[in-house]
Design a protein around this nucleic acid. Structure first.
Lengths: 262, 262
DNA sequence: CGAATAGTTGACTAACGTCAATACTAGTGG
DNA sequence: CCACTAGTATTGACGTTAGTCAACTATTCG
């Protein structure tokens, strides 16, 4: 199963979205970026709706989504599936697993994906020797956590309509950050069942709520392209505040430029 | 468990539960523990049901819960409150906020608490100069994340009964880890409204579900003391697996003992 | 002891799930 | 180009879970 999928399309990736994201964050020096990029040599392609964790059983590798959509999920004993996060280009798939040394939630592609891989040993070496990189990686996992926390708020306190609207706002904002959302809309390749598993709703109910959002002319959805018709109104309806997604610059002392004295 | 190795520290009477936890994890050398403990000099008391974030508006400090129960929460514009995590002794209150440089969710005490404080600058200095400490702190935030993810599963896929049971199992396990849960039961100081805000349920429904758990003789709850009457049955009912709470030892290469070469 | 807070219970309502039938769509091979 | 198929979307009828409102009781605490 595993080998056929990884008819590895090796590419010399200068345009890794993770590197671009980190570059934009201004947390790292050019030299740091080069170090990190040097570790991301191997990339491979995965078809849509493919289980990634099972394909590669080594939890000691770290994967970065480079192109396409994926998700983290967990299946319960009774067969229900919980989608815990949607992964977009530039996101780490399993950095936390590598740090903890445990392959906790599974990863699956949603669309066809391109994924970059490196060994955790390599990442760990970089982080150990360069606190700026360690800090940037740490912050990346914390950004994940902030999104998960907001999902928690959504699931607990928002009814289905606002909850779905909130997810749309989140994806829109995150895709904008990586230049993957135009003014006209963005790629929205999720099935209603996937949305349901992410929101804790049945796919039937997702359908109805989606219908409602279209009827109220908040969004339009044709093919797999979603257009936000009235962003301010959608954000208000969702109770969305982009604050939690912003990556604030750390205070001066949290970037120890003077590292090396020790 | 690792008592003989760290006997020198034990004899010196480590009172801080964070240090005890890290000590038990075997991630750090005695010297590392001493470094960290040296940073936790200031402690202060907070009465029950007190807002902690507002008490200390400086987001550049890091707080560690030393005694008592607290929670992370967020209030929505419409006044609803979402509790995002319960904090137990030894937990960081706001390490992630400090790293990200943003005071995201608020913290409130549930019981009277004792809290240790240190400056983030100090923590950051330790982490920058000592990758073992950086790793341990990173893992601590990831442990948080694992719990949040499991809450997400609970809220999305479990109905109220199993969800509440799951929370009880989680708290029981976490309290056991820090020697705060006896065989006879453990302190359970949450109001039903707090439980509701954490589970995304109304307090009325929490009451009914709690009643049901008692009727089925899974738990008993008197005063603020909860007793688990049949742990295996409760865990089965909740769909609880303690796997996600375990702190696995990292693979050898993730503890670079040889740090200092650079 | 009294006042506030927390817990309990019932009646009713709203949100969401389940089941099932039908329509659409993209990809497939003839 | 068409039919075939499997997955996906849509819609209706109905059941279940959980929310709301409201009254009442039990605790806690000053």
């Amino acid at each position: 199963m595993a080998s056929s999928i990884f008819s590895s399309i090796e590419r010399s990736g200068v345009s890794n979205p993770l590197i671009r994201k980190l570059q934009a964050s201004r947390l790292l020096l050019p030299a740091d970026l080069a170090e990190l990029e040097g570790a991301l040599t191997t990339t491979f392609a995965v078809p849509a709706h493919q289980d990634l964790a099972r394909v590669n059983e080594l939890p000691r590798d770290v994967h970065i989504l480079t192109e396409g959509f994926a998700c983290r999920y967990k299946v319960l004993p009774d067969g229900r599936r919980a989608i815990l996060a949607f992964l977009l280009p530039g996101d780490f798939c399993d950095l936390h697993c590598a740090v903890l040394g445990r392959m906790d939630p599974a990863i699956a592609s949603i669309t066809a994906c391109i994924i970059a891989r490196t060994s955790f040993a390599r990442i760990n070496e970089l982080a150990s020797n360069n606190p700026r990189i360690a800090n940037a990686l740490w912050r990346a996992t914390l950004a994940d956590e902030a999104i998960a926390r907001e999902w928690l708020v959504s699931m607990g306190q928002r009814s289905a309509g606002p909850q779905l609207a909130h997810l749309i706002c989140e994806l829109h904002f995150r895709l904008q950050m990586i230049d993957l959302a135009g003014a006209d809309g963005f790629s929205f390749p999720f099935t209603q069942e996937e949305l349901g598993d992410a929101l804790g709703l049945s796919s039937v109910h997702v359908n109805r709520v989606l219908h409602q959002l279209r009827e109220e002319e908040l969004i339009s959805l044709q093919g797999r392209m979603l257009t936000i018709l009235d962003l301010p109104r959608l954000e208000r309806f969702a109770g969305f505040s982009r604050e939690y997604l912003r990556s604030p610059l750390p205070a001066p002392q949290s970037i120890p430029i003077t590292h090396g004295i020790k």
